[in-house]
Design a protein around this nucleic acid. Structure first.
Lengths: 168, 168
DNA sequence: TCTCTCTTTCAATTGTACCTGAAAGTTGTG
DNA sequence: CACAACTTTCAGGTACAATTGAAAGAGAGA
């Protein structure tokens, strides 16, 4: 397979994956493009590689910076901004886990806490609702803790060892 | 808070959560509704509770059965089909992990394997592409193994212990 | 200050996944 | 078989998110 074809397949696959996980297809593609670029790229590079508009490129680059997945880089003597991706896969995954926890786990946990405390009434249907809420709240807390531990495992020899075992 | 309000908030929150994770909003809402229903519901119950059409209800009920998250139940003397949700939170999460692994991890792993084996050529850009592909393939395999282990942890005392520790 | 280059914004457009409802299909019963 | 009770399908419509492109903004150097 030629380089160009491989590159396109990679970017394409990444975009599809992203969209199945609730992440903007283009954002995922920009990320993929930067991941396989040996050097920094500027907005125009990305626009022409992915055939997208200036506005779209700009929006998704900002979003990726916001997620902590790419960095802005300034070249001496150039006005243009360049971008590079974090290429350490473990850091990438860690960053994604943290961001999604913050953006999507946290809000629902708040709703669950509220329901946990405030739903009144009696009867079977109320009990079933309360139990569901409590179970999910519980599970969410466990998940939160597990994510924190995994994300910070570098600092913890014991968990690091267990994690490696888990993945073998 | 009254029961009805709590119920609506629960269903609403679940729907939002689902859509942020690439799961059909309505499917998540139907699931939520069944989770907090003391008894089985039929298609008409769901249509009126969620104000959705017959076709929509049918589609999403089939999908939920397909995911292994709800079951069909027949009542003696009734033609209608009734539905109940699996309410054990751990089984629910397990099922979702397995299904998503099958549906979304597997396809991209195939692309990565293909690229891993078939990308030809030399030069820095080819090397960077190859490295990205290899890293991701690696990570994907680890994730796959970790999911398998977590999902089957009931049978494995050591990992069960570890998991509990991870979540405390 | 003016101009040139690059970045950001946003109203209008486009794209896409989802939903509807009616019609066709299925199945049990008299 | 004919009917009634439900389920499934799907062509067309809707709603929402993503995208465009042009205009406004921002900053550096002459």
């Amino acid at each position: 397979m030629e380089y160009q074809e491989g590159k396109e397949k990679f970017i394409q696959a990444f975009g599809t994956l992203g969209s199945k996980w609730g992440i903007n297809r283009t954002m995922a593609q920009v990320h993929a493009l930067l991941l396989i670029s040996p050097g920094p790229l500027c907005a125009d590079d990305i626009m022409s590689e992915l055939s997208i508009s200036r506005g779209n490129a700009n929006m998704n680059l900002r979003a990726l910076i916001d997620w902590g997945l790419i960095y802005k880089e300034l070249k001496a003597g150039e006005r243009k901004e360049f971008f590079v991706a974090e290429k350490d896969m473990w850091k990438v995954v860690r960053q994604i886990m943290l961001q999604r926890k913050k953006r999507e786990l946290a809000p629902i946990m708040e709703v669950l806490s509220e329901l946990n405390e405030q739903v009144q009434g009696e009867g079977e249907e109320v009990e079933v609702l309360k139990k569901s809420v409590a179970d999910m709240h519980n599970f969410g807390q466990s998940a939160d803790k597990a994510i924190e531990k995994v994300v910070n495992s570098d600092e913890n020899w014991l968990f690091n060892t267990f994690l490696k075992m888990l993945m073998k």
